[in-house]
C-alpha cells in the first residue's frame, strides 16, 4: 500500500528514521532520495518515454535533469579529476558567465 492511499493524511507518511539529515527513501518503483546535509536529490527511473531514463531532481531548487543509459555509463567512466572539477562551484552553478 502506498502512503498516499491512506485518507488519514500525514500520520502515515514515511519519515526518515535517522536523526541526521542523511536520507535514503526508496519507493516501490525503485526511486528515492539521496540526501545529506549538503544536498538532497530525488532519484527515479522514468518510464514515460519509449525507454527508461533516470530522473534526478534537486529538491532545494526544483531543477530536474534526465539521464539516459549512455550518459550514466559516461559518468561511471568519468576520471576522478573530471568529477572533482565539476565539484568546483565556479565550474557549474556559480560562475559569472551565463549558461549557454
Amino acid at each position: 500500500m502506498s502512503e498516499r492511499d491512506s485518507n488519514t493524511g500525514d500520520a502515515h507518511d514515511v519519515t526518515p528514521d535517522a536523526p541526521c539529515a542523511g536520507t535514503v527513501r526508496v519507493d516501490d518503483s525503485g526511486g528515492g532520495i539521496v540526501g545529506n546535509e549538503f544536498a538532497e536529490v530525488g532519484v527515479a527511473v522514468d518510464h514515460s518515454g519509449n525507454g527508461p531514463r533516470l530522473r534526478l531532481e534537486d529538491y532545494r531548487t526544483g531543477r530536474v535533469r534526465n539521464l539516459d543509459a549512455l550518459e550514466l555509463e559516461t559518468i561511471i567512466w568519468l576520471p576522478e579529476e573530471r568529477l572533482t572539477q565539476l565539484l568546483d562551484p565556479s565550474t557549474t552553478r556559480w560562475r559569472e558567465e551565463p549558461d549557454r
Binding site: L87, D88, P89, S90, R95, E96
Partner: peptide, 16 residues
Amino acid sequence: GWTYRNTGELLGYPYN
C-alpha cells in the same frame, strides 16, 4: 559555498 574533498583538499569556490 566553498567545496572540499572529505580529505580536506579545497575543490573550489563560487564566482572565481
